[in-house]
């Protein structure tokens, strides 16, 4: 049976890993390659690197560190942030990234998803979605890396998931903004609502604070993977212990 994935997310700014609360007030938590190697050795199933300043400031991720990460780790990793063209994606994939993830640029130019899937295959095209409840419905947000530019767009999250998977996205990372960084649990309600309409792997993001949160999101929302940052960076939860505990709770794990 396929294992559920535990995915540490490393938010990157200026070549360092940082972490903020609800996308604000980022603090430095370490060197990219050092943290990547540590998580890989600890049993992480996959890593996501997200250049949080890339979209708002129209900068691109430095492929240089993508190559350095690829040399060190022997698990899959995804690079997100600032990918606006086939060339941006190609540079990261050929530097050794296994997947690329697009968020704001896909909202601004949905055809980008089709083009990426046609050029590189759906298996390496991830669409990240920042989503928040407003007036009883979940809505997509763009430019969420910068609080001064972050804004809701007129697309319902459920519609957008259906559209991008039709356009060729091979995986969805759903970041539930109401929960992000506060460690009170994943947004099980929203993830469970998206699940039936998401024909590709669905990764939960935002809200992990305790081992029970991972169990709940796997068992109640049937997601394929769970992404978390601060609980791993701050050693609130140790990855090996988490996976052993989840396996004991009946969640299929690579231990």
């Amino acid at each position: 049976m396929l294992a559920r994935r535990i995915i540490p997310c490393l938010d990157v700014r200026d070549g360092r890993v940082v972490k903020g609360v609800r996308f604000r007030d980022h603090e430095d938590v370490g060197d990219i390659v050092e943290l990547a190697a540590r998580y890989s050795a600890a049993g992480a199933d996959e890593l996501v690197f997200y250049d949080i300043s890339a979209s708002p400031e129209a900068r691109t991720v430095e492929p240089e560190w993508v190559g350095r990460v690829a040399q060190v780790i022997d698990i899959p990793f995804c690079v997100a942030g600032g990918i606006r063209s086939l060339d941006d994606a190609r540079a990261r994939l050929f530097a050794g990234a296994d997947k690329i993830s697009v968020n704001t640029p896909a909202l601004e130019n949905p055809d980008l998803v089709d083009a990426l899937a046609a050029e590189f295959g759906s298996q390496c095209v991830v669409v990240g979605i920042d989503s928040r409840l407003n007036d009883g419905q979940w809505w997509c947000h763009k430019n969420t890396g910068d609080p001064t530019k972050s804004s809701q767009v007129p697309r319902r999250t459920l519609d957008w998931v259906a559209e991008v998977t039709r356009r060729g996205a091979g995986e969805i990372v759903l970041n539930c903004m109401d929960q992000d960084g506060v460690r009170e649990g994943y947004d099980v309600e929203q993830l469970a609502a998206v699940r039936p309409d998401c024909p590709v792997p669905l990764i939960a993001s935002g809200g992990a604070g305790a081992m029970e949160h991972f169990r709940d999101v796997f068992q109640q929302a049937n997601v394929d993977g769970a992404l978390a940052a601060s609980v791993f960076h701050k050693s609130v939860i140790e990855i090996g212990a988490l996976k052993t505990w989840l396996a004991g709770e009946g969640v299929e794990m690579r231990t």
Binding site: Q123, P199, L202, D224
Partner: peptide, 11 residues
């Protein structure tokens, strides 16, 4: 068994 494609760690 799950979504298509087959993506992840399997035995």
């Amino acid at each position: 068994a799950g979504p298509w494609p087959h993506m992840g760690w399997n035995a």
